[in-house]
Amino acid sequence: MPINKTVAQRVMFVFICFVWGTTWLAMKIGIATVSPGIFAGLRWSLAGAIILLIRRALGERVVPPSRLWPRVTFISVLLITLNQVIQLYGLKTITAGLAAVISSALTPIALLGFSVATGQERFNRRQLGALGMGVAGVLILFGPATIAGTLNLWEVIGAAGVTIGCLCYCSGSVMTRPIMRTLDPVQLAGLTDLIGGLILLVAPVAVEPGAVRSLHFAWGWPAFLAWLYLLGPGALLSTTMYFMLVRDWGPSRPGTYAFVSPVIAVIVGCLWFEEKLHWGNALGMTLMLGAAFVVLRTTGPIQRSAVATSAAKPA
């Protein structure tokens, strides 16, 4: 008996929410024993190579025009290299749940900001209200500890790392839109994954502590399993399913995974890593996700498309 198409789509959506809600946990497991640059570089370079090899086997174009190479390389550094290494080092000092919330909440807001800066979108009152909610969420997360003088500096640095990495990715996402007039989105995804991943592999050998040792692959089975999870379900399967849902549902509806995945990340983090969640943290996270919800619900087709593009590679 054939599976109903609607049921299959819902199963794919649930799969995406769960997998992308647990990728932060897998990254946290991996970087506990492996150099962040090597861990991420191997994942993204291999994912990009697989995408481009499949395109080549199907007879589709792989190499971009020579005039686009500088722009594609620069965008690859923003989308993959800087985004990944900064976020992973930030993840070393904060919980996976907080990292997931910051990334999911900030992405649509940052995309809106960069779109406004490039003249692709305009602010309205509701969006300004959403920014206010986001700021309130941050103040609730860190304000009480600041006033009491008990603020954990390393936690702030970690949150700043995840934030900066997310901003790098969002700025790169907005920059990809003009290039998509020439390059196919999947082709561009493969190129950015491969180029950004290769830079992540080469650069750490010279500057990152433990990078050379990580290339000996004495990672331990938890890190290997985490890496395989991030490569297979986390990158290739979920991204393919996401593009299918964008095709069938439109860009905005699948993007609502951003409000489900962080909840999964927080719950699994509490169970797996015994991460603590206080009522102030929960309230702050709720406000940040509420701000993201307002932005997603009030933006026009152009911005929703940008959100969908960014959501395809959340972490």
Rank of each mutant, 00 (worst) to 15 (best):
G149K: 08
A282P: 15
A203F: 03
A265D: 09
V186L: 15
L237K: 06
T6I: 09
L191P: 00
V207R: 04
Q87H: 14
T192D: 05
A291D: 08
L52R: 09
K28P: 02
A308C: 09
P251H: 12
G300K: 07
K92I: 10
P185C: 06
F293M: 10
M288N: 04
K5V: 07
T95E: 03
L52P: 15
Q9L: 06
A258F: 07
A26G: 08
G172P: 13
P222W: 13
E208I: 12
S305T: 13
E274T: 13
A203P: 01
I3Q: 15
V266N: 00
S305F: 09
M133R: 06
I3R: 08
T150H: 10
L111R: 00
A223R: 00
L82G: 08
G161V: 02
S305A: 15
Q84V: 08
V263N: 01
T239F: 12
T118V: 06
W249T: 02
N152E: 09
D248Y: 02
G59T: 10
L191D: 00
Y257D: 12
W221R: 11
A211D: 00
L188D: 02
T298Y: 14
N124F: 08
L201V: 15
G280F: 10
G255F: 11
L58S: 08
S104H: 01
L53A: 14
L111E: 01
A223N: 05
A32D: 15
Q120F: 05
P251G: 08
A130P: 11
L271P: 09
A117W: 06
P65F: 03
I264L: 13
A105Q: 09
T240A: 15
H216Y: 10
G21K: 01
F217E: 07
I109T: 12
V174D: 14
F293R: 11
W249L: 12
A282N: 15
T240V: 04
G97A: 13
G165C: 04
I86C: 08
T22Y: 06
L79Y: 01
G172A: 11
V156P: 14
T22Q: 13
S173P: 02
L194P: 01
A312Q: 10
I75C: 14
K28H: 12
S115C: 04
V14S: 14
Y257A: 07
R177N: 13
A145Q: 13
L194R: 08
R43K: 04
N281A: 07
Q187H: 04
I302K: 07
I264D: 05
V116L: 15
P2R: 04
T239G: 05
R304V: 10
L58P: 13
P2W: 09
L230S: 05
V202L: 08
T192R: 05
V135E: 11
L141S: 01
I302V: 06
I86S: 06
V268D: 02
A32N: 04
S115D: 07
M175V: 10
L139E: 03
G172H: 02
L283Q: 05
V101R: 04
Y229T: 06
G30I: 03
G134M: 04
V174C: 15
S171W: 07
G197A: 12
M12S: 14
L98D: 11
G165Y: 14
P222L: 05
G134Y: 09
T95D: 03
I80P: 02
G197Y: 01
A235Y: 12
I157F: 06
F114T: 00
P144V: 06
T73G: 15
I302D: 07
A235C: 05
